[in-house]
């Protein structure tokens, strides 16, 4: 809502158009700008005035003092803040390594398996050679799945961290 408003005005905040004006709640018989509006036919009620109430945001809603203090603490890197961010880094790195390990293990085992077991390398599944299925099709869903999973893990770690800071 506010975004649209800023785009309309070229990024310039303008004062509330209703500020200091008496905007009637119920439409009066003579609207504020009669010149622009043709006289309505007598049978219809007059349209409401075109002045729209705009919300002016002067600043972001302030966060609770608690979270502000936690942020300052983090920024100043007191031992407590340092420990917190180290824990987060460790958690992120661990889930990254875990997923990379799983993917590498699954894909990295294939060349060795093909090399040491010629029967495995020449096996067929519904007429198509198994290695072609394992190399040409299977890795892509695997990689996408790993990406999705990591995204969930990482976002959960970050959410937990923010929750912890703000409480």
């Amino acid at each position: 809502m506010t975004d649209d408003y800023y785009r309309d005005t070229g990024g310039i905040r303008q004062p509330d158009p209703t500020l200091g004006k008496r905007v009637p709640v119920t439409p009066e018989p003579s609207p504020p700008r009669p010149a622009r509006q043709p006289a309505p036919p007598p049978s219809e009620p007059p349209p409401p005035p075109r002045v729209r109430r705009q919300r002016v945001v002067l600043a972001e809603p302030t966060k609770s003092t608690n979270s502000l203090r936690a942020r300052v603490e983090l920024e100043e890197q007191t031992s407590w803040g340092e420990m917190l961010i180290k824990d987060l880094i460790k958690a992120q790195l661990r889930s990254g390594l875990l997923l990379a390990g799983i993917v590498l293990l699954l894909l990295g085992a294939l060349p060795v398996a093909f090399y040491y077991s010629p029967t495995f390398a020449t096996m067929r599944l519904v007429g198509i050679p198994l290695p072609w299925l394992l190399l040409g099709v299977a890795p892509f869903p695997l990689l996408f799945g790993a990406g999705l999973w990591y995204n969930r893990l990482a976002e959960r770690h970050e959410r937990d961290f923010v929750d912890m800071i703000e409480n």
Partner: peptide, 24 residues
């Protein structure tokens, strides 16, 4: 033939590594 299939796998998997360790 089959050995060449590692090229597309690698080209894609590079993005997984990028995502896990670098992107954000």
């Amino acid at each position: 033939g089959a050995d060449a299939l590692w090229y597309p796998i690698g080209f894609t998997a590079g993005y997984l590594a990028l995502m896990l360790f670098v992107a954000a």
